[in-house]
Design a protein around this nucleic acid. Sequence first.
DNA 1: CGGCCGATCAGCT
DNA 2: GCTGATCGGCCGA
Length: 214
Amino acid sequence: MSGGRWSRARFADDAATVAERLLGARLVSVSRSGARVSGIIVETEAYVGVEDRASHAAGGRRTARNEAMYGEPGTAYVYFTYGMHHCFNVVCGAEGEPVAVLVRALRPEEGLALMRRRRGPGRSDRELCAGPGRLCQALGIDLRLNGADLALGARLFIEEGSSVKGAIRGRRIGVDYAGDWAAAELRWLVAGDPHVSRPVAGGRNLASGGARGR
DNA sequence: CGGCCGATCAGCT
DNA sequence: GCTGATCGGCCGA
């Protein structure tokens, strides 16, 4: 059912498999004072390997920034972008193979007051964790957690959730530079969940009022 | 060194 | 839908 922490083996599969498996699981961050802040994962993106032109490890690129992608499955890959946002990834696959899943949105569950304090006043529940930068801010995830071990660490981990009904796929966000890989359907979402960052383009989503033109 | 740019977000039209 | 914010990393000279 639910509750147990993800072991190393849960992370040790290809990115598409782990991206779908993460839907419905819980991402937990523990504050310095020991408070749990968590949400249920409702949106993920797979970055499948060196052949994936949208990946930071495209073509086998390996630098200080993306070194965590080459770590063992269950490693956290956190990077800083646009001069102000952090993004959190779960490293999967096999050690030495740069494969990861970006966590894009959560349905907030625990620690809502702390999330709001971190995100600023006037945030609706829906906005707290709807986007990769937003959820990092809400959970207090920054570069200090880059390379953290999600299977053993005390500060950041994944817990088993209940299985999700209505998972759907779509194109990844913000990777238009990636040629053919931009069109690959490597984003997973819980259909109709209002906490996702964006519904699938052209798709039907209960919260969006239906299909749109393109 | 210098210049470019991003796996984003918020606020405005 | 469009754009400015804001800066570390990366690459080329």
